[in-house]
Design a binder for these strands. Structure first.
Lengths: 119, 119
DNA sequence: TCATTATGCAACTAAAAAGTTGCGTATTTG
DNA sequence: CAAATACGCAACTTTTTAGTTGCATAATGA
């Protein structure tokens, strides 16, 4: 519990990926995102038809996804079309890959260490 | 907003990945998880030293990560060691890969459609 | 034009999450 | 043994999140 005033270093990592995961960390939102991955943009009403909650609730979820950059919105006529947005997904994947990579390296180092028998 | 009583089909997907993302969807938890990726198990106290919150708060976060299967815990002596657990990370990655894959396919189909000129 | 459809905004409730504090109990260690 | 360390449990407060309801407005279509 001691810290040098302010922790400005995220271990050479400038971005906060938790907001991305938080956006995907709700069953309704993940379902919507998953569904939009087929490439077809959908209106709020269309997306609400399959969710067992009000349109307003779905709207809020969509805004969370949009704020995270996982979907894009543009209005056409009277309806608001939400579309899949691949960039942040790619970033999330890259981050997880990087974590997995670090873990793998750690395993390798341990393996080498054991094989060389410096117990 | 109409549904056939109960939606038991997740589109051929049996698992709920949102719990995994929810576990990573908090800055403190993600930082802990990220840190443990170096392979070194750490005690609760050790992990609390870098977080600007109480030990109890960190304990709760660790339990969320553990419940999601992202870390493992085993007690040694008076301290409780938390260690990185790669399996669920792999699952999360696989899921995101699958979503990205579906998106790519959708792009391909659109491209072919346009190239063949059936406007 | 008039009813319908699609949406937005605001206020609200309810429930879950994040975090704290106090206290009790093992386990080390000097 | 006595102090210090590491932790667990339980109760509590605070903040966020999820979701609802009511109402207003813009766009469509018969």
């Amino acid at each position: 519990m001691q810290k040098p005033e302010k922790n400005t270093d995220n271990g050479d990592q400038d971005r906060d990926f938790s907001v991305l995961f938080a956006a995907l960390g709700d069953p309704t939102r993940l379902a919507i995102f998953d569904r939009l991955a087929d490439g077809r943009p959908r209106s709020i009403s269309a997306l609400s038809d399959d969710a067992d909650m009000t349109r307003q609730a779905v709207t809020k979820h969509l805004r969370v996804l949009e704020a995270a950059g996982l979907v894009q919105n543009h209005r056409v006529g009277r309806e608001s079309q939400y579309a899949f947005c691949p960039d942040q997904l790619a970033e999330a994947r890259a981050y997880l890959d990087q974590v997995a990579g670090r873990w793998e390296s750690a395993l390798m180092r341990l393996k080498t260490f054991v094989e060389d028998g410096e117990a």
